[in-house]
Design a protein around this nucleic acid. Sequence first.
DNA 1: ATTTTGACGACGT
DNA 2: GACGTCGCCAAAA
Length: 120
Amino acid sequence: MKDQDSFFDRVFELVKQIPYGRVSSYGAIAEYLGIKGSARMVGWAMNASHSRPENIPAHRVVNRQGMLTGKNHFGGPEVMQQLLESEGIEVVNDKIVNFEKLFWNPMQKIENKKTNDSNR
DNA sequence: ATTTTGACGACGT
DNA sequence: GACGTCGCCAAAA
């Protein structure tokens, strides 16, 4: 068997770990993957998510402005916003309200894990 | 192998 | 602050 350690898979893994009612940004994910500055790759990976057998909550991933940039890729420009609102996230003018508060940073996950692991 | 793209981000004007 | 350009890297054509 072959390991598909593609950069895509890593993105999916992380995106799938985004908690309900929370959102993240391409750049943050890219940075987590070690390709900081290449946020485009994350979005590109999302594009590949359509060919994935798994459900990728790509609607929880937006750009730095909290804007639903990729809404056009959900099969409909309204789908993404619907999904977000469905999770209790307010979206106004294709922009997430309180994005700052709803922002989920993957790096935090690492810090938590570290603290939990090396707490003692 | 080369070229183009691509759901971004940061900086410059 | 709106618009322009570059940078970043990997996958598809």
